[in-house]
């Protein structure tokens, strides 16, 4: 069994000596100075009482000294024999909670990693030409799942204080950009699959030619074949529901990201006294409505004039 009393004493002594050192750090360089500042008493009692720094001009040092003293007193109190057992239990509980939390996250991460490895392994598998059923959406969805379960919640922590709105906008920007870029990467990944399939078809074709003793005499012909097959694979992919779904996700997430980005930009513009996009839109809307009204009225006037003339 571990001797908790000895351990706590060691920690207590270590923290106390560190605090004392920290307390001495600021006043001492001042003492070594030869100018007026050094000799004007820029030092204070490093003991528990002492009031050399009680002058208004040294109030920063006084505040610092008080904080250190309070911390030392608190540590001493915590290290008192009657509190040691409780302290030890609390530290143990805290460590346990941290370990558990890290364990959960690690478990989720390992799950994600295992899914990702499986999914990426699929990419290397033989893919049938002109079929897009094996387009792997799960690797990207796994990432989004991990993000939604493990990271998004931290960005959604309620913001407080004066700058809460700015914090909220920035968190939202990070959130929306992560989601958008995950969809964009998936979309880009989809565009690599027709190339992969085409290259496989061409490799097989060239292999057969070489086995038959044929040589590619006209590279242009090979290119023409390649581009024709590639076009076919692209057409199949672009028509597929999988592609349209990813495209739509990319569009909607881009719109959400752009919306938040606009709102962050507006906040900066407002600070710089520059009219924001939203403010300008209001002005434009007014101008638009006025122009429309003028157009209608002008036509009515012209009609009336014609009637009068007739």
């Amino acid at each position: 069994m571990t001797d908790t009393t000895t351990q706590s004493n060691e920690i207590g002594n270590f923290v106390e000596s560190w605090m004392t050192m920290a307390k001495k750090f600021w006043p001492e360089p001042g003492n070594n100075r030869e100018d007026g500042l050094g000799s004007s008493g820029l030092k204070f009692d490093s003991g528990n009482g002492g009031g050399q720094a009680d002058d208004d001009k040294y109030k920063t040092y006084k505040t610092f000294e008080n904080s250190i003293n309070n911390s030392i007193a608190f540590i001493k109190l915590m290290m008192a024999p009657e509190n040691r057992e409780t302290l030890h239990r609390s530290v143990a509980a805290y460590t346990e909670a941290l370990t558990e939390s890290a364990g959960d996250s690690l478990e989720n991460f390992i799950e994600f990693q295992s899914q990702a490895v499986k999914s990426f392994a699929k990419v290397g598998e033989h893919t049938k030409a002109y079929t897009l059923d094996d387009l792997d959406h799960s690797a990207f969805e796994s990432f989004r799942e991990l993000y939604r379960n493990e990271l998004q919640k931290y960005l959604k922590i309620p913001k407080i204080g004066l700058p809460r709105e700015y914090h909220e906008r920035m968190s939202e920007l990070v959130d929306k950009s992560t989601i958008f870029f995950s969809h964009l990467i998936e979309l880009i990944y989809q565009f690599t699959t027709p190339f992969e399939k085409t290259n496989r078809v061409m490799q097989d074709k060239i292999k057969k030619m070489l086995e038959g003793g044929e040589v590619v005499e006209d590279p242009k012909q090979v290119y023409n074949d390649w581009i024709k097959i590639l076009e076919g694979h692209f057409m199949d992919m672009l028509k597929s529901k999988e592609y349209t779904d990813v495209l739509n996700d990319t569009i909607t997430s881009l719109a959400a990201y752009k919306g938040v980005k606009n709102s962050v930009t507006d906040a900066f513009l407002k600070e710089m006294q520059i009219p924001t996009g939203r403010e300008m839109d209001e002005v434009y809307k007014d101008i638009y409505n006025m122009k429309k009204k003028i157009r209608d009225l002008s036509r009515q006037v012209a009609k009336l004039q014609k009637k009068q003339e007739a």
Binding site: L238, K239, T244, L247, N248, I251, T252, L254, A255, K258, G259, N262, G277, D281
Partner: peptide, 20 residues
């Protein structure tokens, strides 16, 4: 025509709104 498919199955019109 792909354009037909995409215009019907996506919400492309929202891009116009966010970009003005």
């Amino acid at each position: 025509g792909l354009l037909n498919v995409w215009m019907k199955q996506t919400d492309a019109q929202i891009l116009g709104d966010v970009y003005a």
